[in-house]
Amino acid sequence: MTRPTHRLTFTAAPDDAGKRLDVFLAAAADDLSRSRLKALILDGAVTMDGTAETNPKKPVVAGATYAVAVPEPVAATPEPQDIPLDVLFEDEHLIVINKPSGMAVHPAPGSHDGTLVNALLFHCQGQLSGIGGVERPGIVHRIDKLTTGVLVAAKTEPAHLGLSALFSTHDIERAYLAVTRGAPRPSHGTVDEHLARSSADRKKMAVVKNPEAGFGRHAVTHYKTLETFGIREKGTNFPSAALVECRLETGRTHQIRVHMAHIGTPLVGDPVYGRHKGVSVLGSGPGRDAGFDAARAFPRQALHAAVLGFIHPVTKEALRFEAPLPEDMSDLIAALRRLPKKV
């Protein structure tokens, strides 16, 4: 059965003459990405004065009328699932949620359903205008399955394009709270280290030793120690753990986890980048035992996306969202605060 379509028409001005067809249409059609238009051209959905144009590089002719037949979006492959969401904000263009631990963002091996995409497909039924021709939410950034906190998704293609541009140019405020083993020295600073897939384990990311050779992707994390807990070495003031705020200048896979481990303070509970679970503490008594046990038993990386701020890509309103610490991290911090401060 033929999919229903809607048509867009544009007449090329003298200044448009000679431009690539896909470039011209992307500038004229604000609601469609260049990659989407390129696919439509290749599919024969674009005509010039009634004649099909199938070459995205074809030079535009001044005065010619170009028509784009845009098919209605097809149903997404993942199934909608009625999964409760903690919605912080929603309008016709985008939705901001506070993601719980244990929820993957996308379906993947080991997480075929129960993901944020499944939940959004159900929650936003009838509201998705189609991202790249598919009825789906536009995911422009991710947080790990076991990481909690604020995440934004687009419901329309203009919002998806706008959010993607904001993340690409790093015009986003992103602050995370992390509990680390030990405390960073100095107490605040910047980690500016390229990241790439580990050559020893392709599931892990690693700091690149020779970025000048063109390996890896630039990654910058600004950190600030907010609070320290306990003491780990006799005769020193080295803390056993710390609450650290991390602000992202870039957003690479596992960036905070790798950068914090790189400076010697991996996240408590991190199963991949922490050398072992728990914290080293001195002292004695129930406070020591409670703090040690809480850190050792923490079942995930202690990381929470606390703040997300950006300019709404359609309405241009300044938006900023904060998600409170989840209960498990609050309980961990409460236990660490009972660690003895001296031997």
Rank of each mutant, 00 (worst) to 15 (best):
K203T: 15
K204A: 15
M205L: 06
A206C: 08
A206K: 10
V207W: 01
V208N: 00
K209L: 11
N210F: 14
N210H: 15
N210M: 14
E212A: 11
A213E: 07
F215E: 08
F215Q: 13
G216F: 12
R217H: 12
A219N: 08
T221M: 00
Y223C: 06
T225I: 13
T225P: 07
L226N: 02
G230L: 15
G230W: 14
I231L: 13
I231W: 06
I231G: 05
I231R: 15
I231H: 11
R232L: 01
R232I: 06
R232M: 05
K234I: 12
K234M: 12
G235V: 13
G235W: 10
G235K: 12
T236E: 06
N237F: 09
N237S: 15
N237A: 13
F238P: 00
F238R: 11
F238S: 12
P239L: 04
P239C: 04
P239V: 06
P239A: 13
S240Q: 08
A241C: 14
A241V: 12
A242W: 01
A242S: 00
L243D: 07
V244T: 09
E245W: 04
R247G: 05
L248P: 03
L248D: 04
E249P: 02
T250Q: 12
R252C: 01
R252L: 04
T253L: 11
H254A: 01
H254D: 01
I256Y: 02
R257K: 03
R257P: 06
V258S: 02
V258M: 04
H259L: 07
H259T: 00
M260S: 05
A261G: 10
A261F: 11
H262A: 07
I263C: 09
G264N: 02
G264V: 08
G264L: 04
T265Q: 09
T265V: 12
T265H: 14
T265F: 02
P266L: 10
